[in-house]
């Protein structure tokens, strides 16, 4: 539950920004995510769901528009920030959560790597106590698991921790408005 911009008490729609659609485990993972969202009082929306995008002319643009339509409808974003094809999160996922940040909507991410950026297994070399990658780009040592801008996202260590973090934030607002906190269901 949360109080939406029109003052209504309802479950927030959560856009699940992710790279699972590329993986064979997609169905199973998304099922777990949606069930976990439900336990914490969120409605998880996988971008691929809803009306099927039919093959044909301008197919990929229509897929983009389909996903954007979900972004426009959702109240919150949960993003999968684990490495994808290297040492960076998926760019589509970042674009999507960036949209929610731009809209000043609640945005959360999860990263299961558990390491600060400087501790990650990026090939690096040291120069006067400062680390650079093999292409000469600085590896920031600023207490975060990601580069500077991604500090705008609240990041947890797992999908469930992220749900818990978001629930806590929403419950604070519910309590402040005189409501009971959401009764989280046991997993």
């Amino acid at each position: 539950m949360f109080i939406d911009l029109e003052g209504r008490l309802r479950k927030p729609l959560v856009y699940l920004a992710d790279f699972e659609m590329f993986l064979p485990t997609c169905e199973e993972t998304v099922k777990y995510w949606k069930e976990t969202c439900d336990r914490y009082g969120f409605i998880g929306i996988f971008p691929g769901e809803g009306e099927k995008v039919e093959p044909g002319e301008d197919f990929f643009r229509r897929v983009f528009e389909h996903d954007c339509n979900w972004m426009y409808k959702c109240d919150v974003c949960f993003a999968q920030l684990d490495d994808w094809r290297g040492h960076e999160p998926d760019s589509g996922t970042l674009f999507e959560i960036g949209y929610f940040i731009g809209k000043d909507l609640p945005s959360y991410g999860f990263y299961t790597g558990g390491k600060k950026l400087i501790e990650r297994d990026i090939p690096k070399k040291e120069e006067d106590g400062v680390f650079y990658d093999d292409k000469g780009y600085l590896i920031e040592d600023k207490g975060s698991s990601f580069d500077n801008m991604l500090n705008l996202i609240k990041i947890a260590d797992s999908f469930e921790d992220m749900c818990r973090m978001a629930r806590k934030d929403f419950d604070k607002l519910l309590i402040a408005a005189g409501h009971e906190p959401y009764p989280v269901k046991e997993g």
């Binding site: 040492h87 960076e88 760019s91 970042l94 674009f95 940040i101 990658d133 580069d147 801008m149």
Partner: peptide, 18 residues
């Protein structure tokens, strides 16, 4: 730092701009 993926801030900031 990857193959076929841009810098994380580039993608993220494009999304913010969007």
């Amino acid at each position: 730092r990857s193959f076929l993926e841009p810098y994380s801030e580039s993608a993220f900031e494009l999304g913010i701009g969007f």
